[in-house]
């Protein structure tokens, strides 16, 4: 395949990785393994070394930004250390009861924070109301509970929420300009590229989006139903889906039933750290039906590509080129 054709895409990938490394190396407590991995990454090509040098220079420049927004000494946020430690909160489990006992204003301060997973990771977390969420690979959420509304912003990726009943404060997942609301129930919201998919596995979920949040722009999902919407648009008609395969990721599986090859590869790509580049002449590829384990996503990509007579070139941690 023509290397130049994908050259800029690959450069972009390298620049992103270079910035990942800058931030990681500036974390403090860098491990020997990380340092070795970094050196191996940078040694891959002169392009990698150049990209790192460029981002390093920028990072140094950023040391001189106006820090006046920050108090002289970093002020610790009020954090009820004795009540609930954030560690426990992240791991999930038996914190629900004690979290509920924390006074509301405090919850407001320390709850406004993010959860994020990396490629191939799944993390479950308990929210202060006792609701739980399971974050799939490459996902990020921002929790913003306030009186009368349990708001969670899904920044990207896919998360399943199990909502504790509370009629006084509905549970809302906001993503790409639309809202998925429930008083109780279990539902998964996925925000990939410009599209949000909401799948209900228990309870009744109300999905709204578009210019006006009126009845015309709202659909209601019952168990086993799904809807989608594009950024800022109204949700599409409700469809019945097979929950087993739609939510197979919860059990670490990906299930394809007659899925176009390119979107199947894209789906698997969410579970690997590399960026995927697919040669353009694949539009006539046949649909794919298969079950893969998400932890073997690299093998799955290779296997899928082989079924289409394509080959896979992988630069670990950087890019996978399928041609």
């Amino acid at each position: 395949m023509g290397k130049g054709q994908h050259g800029s895409e690959i450069d972009r990938g390298i620049a992103l990785d270079a910035r990942d490394w800058i931030v990681r190396l500036s974390a403090g407590n860098v491990s020997r393994q990380d340092l070795d991995r970094f050196n191996a990454w940078r040694a891959q090509s002169p392009g990698h070394a150049r990209a790192f040098a460029r981002e390093k220079e920028f990072w140094q420049l950023l040391q001189n930004v106006d820090g006046s927004g920050l108090d002289v000494a970093p002020v610790a946020m009020p954090m009820p250390r004795s009540a609930v430690s954030r560690r426990k909160f992240l791991v999930g489990g038996a914190v629900a009861a004690s979290a509920a006992a924390v006074a509301a204003p405090r919850v407001l301060t320390w709850m406004r924070s993010d959860f994020a997973t990396g490629a191939g990771e799944q993390v479950s977390a308990t929210l202060p109301d006792g609701s739980t969420m399971l974050l799939n690979t490459n996902s990020a959420v921002d929790v913003d509970f306030r009186p009368g509304l349990r708001l969670v912003n899904l920044l990207s990726g896919e998360v399943e929420f199990s909502v504790r009943p509370d009629t006084r404060a509905p549970f809302r997942v906001a993503a790409l300009g639309g809202n998925s609301d429930a008083v109780e129930g279990t539902y998964a919201v996925r925000s990939i590229a410009d599209e949000v998919t909401v799948t209900a596995s228990a309870g009744r979920i109300s999905v709204s989006g578009g210019a006006k949040a009126d009845a015309a722009n709202t659909v209601s999902l019952a168990t086993g139903q799904q809807t989608r919407y594009l950024t800022g648009k109204a949700p599409l008609a409700v469809a019945d889906v097979n929950l087993e395969s739609e939510l197979a990721w919860r059990g670490g599986r990906v299930v394809f039933e007659g899925k176009p090859f390119v979107s199947a590869i894209g789906e698997l790509g969410r579970y690997v750290p590399e960026r995927l580049v697919i040669a353009t002449h694949t539009h006539d590829a046949s649909p794919v039906s298969a079950v893969f384990l998400t932890r073997d996503a690299h093998d799955a990509i290779e296997a899928l590509a082989q079924t289409q007579g394509m080959s896979v070139h992988r630069v670990p941690g950087v890019v996978i080129v399928i041609s």
Partner: peptide, 23 residues
Amino acid sequence: LMNRVNGVSHREIARQLGISDEA
């Protein structure tokens, strides 16, 4: 700013703000 200007480590920021290192 805490990290870049004040040089506070990720872990220390995480501890102070009560969030995870990854966050």
